[in-house]
Amino acid sequence: MRRAASLLAATIAIATAACQGPALAAEKVVEAPAAKRVAKEGKGLKTAVFAGGCFWGVEGVFSHVKGVKGAVSGYHGGTERSASYEVVSSGVTDHAEAVKVTYDPAVIRYDQLLRIFFSVVTDPTQLNRQGPDTGSQYRNALVPMSAEQNAVAKAYLAQLRTAKLWDKPIVTRIERAQGFYPAESYHQDFMLKNPRHGYIVRWDAPKVAALKRLYPSAYSESFQRN
C-alpha cells in the first residue's frame, strides 16, 4: 500500500511538472462569432471530443457549461496500449490529451460548444503546444463523432479563417474519431478537486471566468462532476 501511494504521488508530480512549464503571458481570450452553420442533431444526448492542450482546463470549462452532462479527460489518437499519462506525456505516441463531452443539444448545440472552445479554451494558432505546454500531445483538434458534427466543424473553421480574429493562421485539425481512453482517476475533475493548484489558478481558472463573462447564459455555477 505504501509503495502504491508513493507511485501515485510520483505520477502526480510528473503530471504537475509537465502541465506547468515556464511562466508565459496569459492566453488571449477571443470572442468567436456565432456559427452560421447551426448543428441539427435531433433529440437525445450526444458526445464530442475536443483536444485543446492540458485536459484539466478543457474539462474544467466544459464542466461549467449548461447542458453538458459529463466531461471526461482522456487520450485520443493513439493505441490503447499507449494510453497512459506517463507514456503520452513523453510525446512519442499519437495521442492528444482530450476531453469527451456528453451534452444535451436541446440545451447546448455542438456549434455553440465550438464557439466556447475557440473563445476561451484553446488558441487555434498554436501548433503542437498550448500555453506553457509543448508537444504533439497538446495539439488542438476537433474530433467529430457524427457526420453532422463533422460538417459543422468544417464550416465553423472556414468561418473563423475568414473572420481573421487571430494574427496567425489557424492550425486546428479535424481528426477522425478513434478510440478514446479515459485518463487516470486523479486527472478527472482536477479543477474541482484542486482549485488552488498553481497551474489551475494561473491558466485554467481565467478560462472559466472568461466563459462566465462572455457567455453568461451558457454558464453554470455548479460543476458537472464525472
Rank of each mutant, 00 (worst) to 15 (best):
T125G: 10
R109K: 15
S119M: 07
S89K: 12
F118G: 08
G70I: 01
V121Q: 01
K40T: 13
S63P: 04
G42V: 05
R81S: 13
L7S: 13
T79V: 12
V72F: 04
F117Q: 05
S119Y: 01
S89T: 07
S146A: 09
R3Q: 15
T122G: 00
E97H: 12
D104S: 06
Y138M: 09
F55Y: 13
P22I: 08
G67V: 05
H64L: 11
I108N: 00
L7C: 06
G52S: 12
E27C: 05
N140W: 00
P22R: 14
Q126C: 03
G91F: 12
Y85C: 06
C54V: 08
E148T: 10
L114H: 05
S90V: 08
G91S: 14
P132A: 10
E41K: 02
L7P: 00
V68C: 07
M145D: 02
I108L: 04
A23D: 11
V143Q: 07
G74V: 11
Q20L: 13
V99Y: 08
S82H: 14
E97Q: 12
V101Q: 03
V61E: 04
F50Y: 09
R81V: 13
V88Q: 03
G53F: 07
E80T: 10
P22E: 13
Q130A: 09
A9R: 15
I14T: 14
A106E: 15
